[in-house]
Each structure stands twice: as structure tokens, then as C-alpha cells.
């Protein structure tokens, strides 16, 4: 009898849950993003001003997000963020809706250097949000040589002083750059040479860290670092005396973009929220909060001095002109990269 009662109670809970989902009067906007990628007060203020109920859900990797998008019920999301290469895949699979620029006036403020990239040649589907380029940062008091580019990382005086990101494509990529090749090289012979060159870097490496290399720099464990934009920015905001290098061989580039899934049910709300985020003053605030390059030209005058003086975040556009994206190179070449990386790590 007790069991029957508890079963009945469970059934009642279920129905209560189900009915709870269907009875919302407010407009709803469902966003799928990395945690912390939109400052929380921007979300709450928009929700309160426009009587919109914003639901945020999170994902960890681009690939997870794509899987979710491909499942037939993905129409539940109205606005999604993703990195450049994943936007390319999603666009080719017709998963994206065109951005209605008549509903997003602030699209015009976005800098030309961030638009019309390979993943969206006519900038029809993706709205660039955060851009970054991995950089070299070093502590001049602990380094004798003048570092100008990637090639200087091989300098024997830097033995056991480097922290670099634990990422095959980026690190093999900069090795290729020192050889005058592309980040997206697929020729096996060239990759073999790169593998040998990369192995010679091993004595200089103190540690490999993908998520928190900035901590090794700040604690003094490493004197030279190669890491992502926001990490370099974090190092510089603590230690302004550290130097940033824009490698002369050319820099890698990455842009995370907003897009609206083709099956989204509330596209207009998504465009309206995008327009709201890209208001010049608000976008300056967002760029400072998330610590990436500001893609909104109209925001320039609202940026704080601390942001403008941070050389990892405020990069001259003539330097940015030379950037190259890490693109999808197909599974065969990717396997070669993996193999090179494994060999390098096992040394």
C-alpha cells in the first residue's frame, strides 16, 4: 500500500512538472552558450526591460554543441555560440538561419577584419562575437634574448622555461609557421619535417597546459608562455611589466560567433537580443568582461584605458591583417597531427 502511495506521488510530481512547462505567458529566448560568455547583468537587464524570459544552457565543446544541434529537437534553441570551424560545418549542413540584418542595425558596427571569413564568406549566418589570437608573453627579467617570433622559442637559453598550450593544431601550427608553411599544412613530407623540428623544442618546455597556463606565468614557474588571448590578457592585467610578442611569422586567429539555428522558433527575439548586445557602449562592457578583442568598431570610445593598454586585447589592425585561421583539414591529416603530437608528448 505504501508503495502504491509513493508511486502515485511520483506520478503526480511528473504531471506537475509537465504542466509547469507549458504555462508561460512571457516570450522565451533560449540561448546555448559557454558559461560566463555573456555577463549575467546584460542578460537580467534585457529580460527585465523587454519582458522576456531568457534561459541559458551550457555546453563544453563545440562538437557537443553540434551534436545537440543536429538532433531533431534542437529547434528548442534560438541563439547559439560556436567557434569558426564549427560554424563552417553547421553552415554546410544547412543548420543555420540567415541573420536578418534589418532587425539588427548594430551589425554595421562590426569591424571589416572580422567579417566575410572562410566559414561564412558573405557574413550571412554568423555574427562575430569574440576574437582572439594566441600570443607569446614573457617576463623580460628572466629572459636574456629578445623574442620576436615563434622561432625564438627554440633558443637554447630558454631551456625548461616555457609553458605552452596543450593543443596539437596550434603548437604544430606555429612549428610550421617557423618553416614558412601554413597552419593548415597537409603534405605528409612537410609534416614529418615539422615533427622533427617540434621534437627539438622539448628541452625548453617546462609544462603543457590548455586551461590555466596563465597561473604558471604568474607563479613564476615559467618565464615564457604561448597561450590564448584571454589567458595572455589575464597575465598582463596582473603583471603589466611582462612583454607581449606579435610573432613576425604571422599569427593564428579564432573567432567565436553567434548564430541562429534554422529550426529556431523565436528568431526575432534572438535578433533583437543580438542587436541589444551590440549597442556600442554595452559591447565595450562585454568585451572588457570576457577579455577578448572587441569586434565592434563603434565601441572604441567606450573602452577603458586598462583595456586599451592591454596589448593582448588591443592589437593594431595592420598586425591583425596577417592572421590565419586553423581550419578543418579532414580526418586523414588530423590523424597525422595527432600522431606527431603524441610522439612529442611521449619524449
Amino acid at each position: 500500500m505504501k508503495k502504491l502511495l509513493s508511486l502515485a506521488a511520483c506520478a503526480a510530481l511528473f504531471t506537475a512538472l509537465l504542466s509547469g512547462c507549458g504555462s508561460q505567458q512571457k516570450q522565451t529566448l533560449n540561448i546555448l552558450t559557454w558559461d560566463g560568455y555573456i555577463p549575467s547583468n546584460v542578460i537580467s537587464e534585457y529580460g527585465a526591460d523587454n519582458n522576456v524570459n531568457i534561459n541559458i544552457s551550457n555546453f563544453t565543446t563545440n562538437e557537443e554543441m553540434l551534436t545537440k544541434l543536429q538532433s531533431s529537437e534542437a529547434s528548442q534553441y534560438d541563439l547559439v555560440i560556436g567557434s569558426d570551424y564549427i560554424v563552417d560545418i553547421a553552415r554546410k549542413q544547412n543548420l543555420l538561419a540567415e541573420i536578418d540584418k534589418t532587425k539588427m542595425n548594430n551589425f554595421n558596427n562590426i569591424g571589416k577584419e572580422f567579417l566575410n571569413q572562410y566559414y561564412d564568406p558573405e557574413s550571412k549566418y554568423a555574427v562575430p562575437y569574440s576574437a582572439g589570437t594566441p600570443l607569446i608573453v614573457y617576463d623580460p627579467s628572466k629572459v636574456d634574448t629578445d623574442i620576436k617570433g615563434y622561432a625564438d622559442l627554440w633558443n637554447p637559453s630558454l631551456a625548461d622555461k616555457l609553458v605552452i598550450m596543450d593543443d596539437a593544431r596550434n603548437v604544430i601550427g606555429i612549428t610550421l609557421k617557423t618553416m614558412g608553411k601554413s597552419l593548415n599544412e597537409t603534405d605528409p613530407a612537410v609534416l614529418q619535417q615539422a615533427s622533427e623540428k617540434l621534437n627539438a623544442l622539448r628541452p625548453n618546455i617546462r609544462l603543457l597546459d590548455y586551461n590555466n597556463p596563465q597561473e604558471a606565468m604568474l607563479s613564476g614557474e615559467a618565464a615564457v608562455g604561448y597561450m590564448f588571448t584571454s589567458q595572455v590578457a589575464a597575465v598582463l592585467s596582473e603583471r603589466p611589466d611582462f612583454k607581449v610578442v606579435y610573432p613576425w611569422e604571422g599569427m593564428g586567429f579564432g573567432i567565436d560567433n553567434w548564430f541562429v539555428p534554422a529550426k529556431a522558433t523565436n528568431k526575432d527575439a534572438a535578433f533583437d537580443f543580438l542587436n541589444y548586445m551590440y549597442e556600442p557602449e554595452r559591447f565595450a562592457y562585454i568585451a572588457e568582461q570576457i577579455q577578448y578583442l572587441c569586434v565592434n568598431n563603434a565601441s572604441e570610445k567606450y573602452l577603458s584605458d586598462a583595456y586599451k593598454n592591454n596589448t593582448a586585447l588591443h592589437i593594431p589592425s595592420e598586425v591583425l591583417g596577417d592572421t590565419e585561421f586553423i581550419e578543418d583539414i579532414g580526418t586523414d591529416a588530423a590523424a597525422v597531427y595527432d600522431e606527431i603530437w603524441t610522439k612529442f608528448k611521449q619524449q
Binding site: 512547462c21 522565451t28 533560449n30 540561448i31 546555448l32 559557454w34 558559461d35 560566463g36 560568455y37 534561459n55 541559458i56 544552457s57 551550457n58 555546453f59 563544453t60 528548442q76 534553441y77 586551461n211 584571454s230 570576457i290
Partner: peptide
């Protein structure tokens, strides 16, 4: 979309 759980959120913070 409206049932984000704590572990998913924490894992997602790896990005920032």
C-alpha cells in the same frame, strides 16, 4: 533549454 544542471555549468566554465 530551461534545465541547465550544475555539473554541466561548471564544466562549461573551462572556456573562460
Amino acid at each position: 533549454p530551461n534545465t541547465n544542471t550544475l555539473p554541466v555549468k561548471i564544466f562549461s566554465q573551462m572556456k573562460t
